[in-house]
């Protein structure tokens, strides 16, 4: 498995690992059967993501994409975070092996899942804003 230096860096020194006690949105995606689970915590103030943390069970790429995704949305507005694509995560990591692209999709979906939870907590239907959350295929 040929990982880029950036992937290995984000794997060995993952940014933003952990939980946020009083998170405003928590998302979880994946299942242990497939071998990847990402849990994402967001702190949101005035439409700005002030903090993001994650916990991941999965391969090197799963950890690295989670780490990169949190980096890419921290300090951004919700609107910007919703524009985060898996492709952007892949590019920021200087690429991923083809068989690991699904990890970047999981990272994108984990962010959306956390934002979806945020809207639900506000009493707002998340689907028109965030869309449906895609669970990985088994």
């Amino acid at each position: 498995m040929l990982y880029s230096e950036k992937v290995l860096d984000h794997f060995s020194n993952p940014r933003n690992v952990g939980e946020i006690e009083d998170a405003d949105g928590i998302g979880e995606i994946g299942n242990a059967k497939c071998g990847d689970i990402m849990k994402m915590y967001l702190k949101i103030d005035d439409n700005i993501i002030t903090d993001a943390k994650f916990k991941t069970f999965g391969c090197g790429a799963a950890v690295a994409t989670s780490s990169m995704a949190t980096e890419l949305i921290k300090g951004k507005s919700i609107d910007d975070a919703l524009k985060l694509t898996n492709q952007a995560v892949v590019e920021a990591l200087d690429g991923l092996p083809a068989v690991k692209i699904h990890c970047s999709v999981l990272a994108e979906q984990a962010v959306r899942s956390a934002l979806s939870d945020y809207y639900t907590r506000q009493g707002i239907d998340p689907v028109p804003i965030v869309g449906e959350i895609k669970e990985p295929e088994e």
Partner: peptide, 21 residues
């Protein structure tokens, strides 16, 4: 998950293998 474990072992100079997908 096994692959993560192998990568971390490798960073510590240990070559191992896993039955992970």
């Amino acid at each position: 998950e096994g692959e993560s474990l192998l990568l971390m072992l490798d960073m510590n100079g240990i070559c191992a293998s896993s039955g992970s997908a």
